[in-house]
Amino acid sequence: MSVNRMILNETSYFGKGAIKEVVTEANKNHFKKALVVTDKDLLKFNVATKVTAILDEAGLDYEIFDQIVPNPTIEDVQAGVKACQSAQADHIIAIGGGSVIDTAKAIGIIVTNPEFSDVLSLEGVADTKNKTLPILAIPTTSGTAAEVTINYVITDKANERKFVCVDPHDIPVAAFIDSDMMLGMPKGLCAATGMDALTHAIEGYITKGAWEMTDMLHLQAIEVIAKSLRDSVAGSEKGREQMALGQYLAGMGFSNVGLGLVHGMAHPLSAHYDTPHGVACATLLPKIMDYNKEYTGERYREIARRFGIADADKMPLDQVREAAVQAVKQLGIDVGIPQNLRELGVKEEDIPQIAADAYRDVCTPGNPRETTLEEISGLYRSML
Results as ranks from 00 to 15, higher is better:
Leu42Gln: 02
Gln85Asn: 15
Lys44Tyr: 10
Met265Asn: 01
Thr132His: 00
Ile225Thr: 02
Ala137Glu: 03
Asp274Ser: 14
Ile337Arg: 02
Val37Glu: 06
Pro365Ser: 02
Asp196Leu: 04
Thr364Glu: 13
Lys82Arg: 15
Asn367Lys: 07
Val173Glu: 02
Ala358Phe: 03
Cys363Thr: 13
Val77Gln: 08
Ser270Glu: 04
Ser377Lys: 14
Arg306His: 15
Leu259Val: 11
Glu343Gln: 07
Val328Asp: 01
Asn71Val: 05
Arg161Gly: 03
Cys165Pro: 13
Asp178Tyr: 05
Ala58Thr: 00
Gly345Lys: 01
Thr207Met: 12
Asn292Gly: 04
Asp334Glu: 13
Ala126Asn: 08
Met195Val: 08
Val335Ile: 14
Gly246Glu: 06
Ala58Ile: 03
Pro368Cys: 08
Lys40Met: 11
Gly264Met: 10
Tyr248Gly: 10
Gly59His: 08
Asp118Ile: 06
Val36Cys: 02
Gly251Lys: 10
Lys50Met: 08
Met1Lys: 15
Ala221Tyr: 05
Cys165Glu: 12
Asp76Glu: 12
Asp361Tyr: 09
Asn151Val: 14
Ile64Val: 13
Met213Trp: 14
Leu249Cys: 07
Ser117Ile: 13
Lys50Val: 07
Gly184Ala: 14
Tyr291Glu: 05
Gln339Thr: 07
Thr144Asp: 01
Glu349Gly: 12
Gly366Tyr: 03
Met182His: 07
Met243Ile: 07
Tyr205Met: 11
Ala355Glu: 00
Cys190Thr: 15
Val77Thr: 13
Ala126Asp: 06
Ala175His: 04
Thr296Lys: 12
Val362Lys: 14
Leu217Val: 04
Gly235Arg: 09
Ala244Phe: 03
Lys238His: 05
Ser142Gln: 08
Tyr291Ile: 03
Gln220Tyr: 06
Ile68Leu: 08
Tyr291Met: 04
His277Asn: 05
Gly278Phe: 06
Glu63Ile: 12
Ala271Tyr: 09
Arg369Gly: 09
Arg360Asp: 14
Ser236Thr: 03
Ala192Gln: 08
Asp118Ser: 06
Asp156Leu: 10
Gln353Asn: 09
Met289Trp: 01
Asp274Leu: 11
Ala358Ser: 05
Lys16Ile: 15
Val325Trp: 00
Thr372Phe: 09
Glu21Arg: 15
Asp357Phe: 11
Ile64Trp: 05
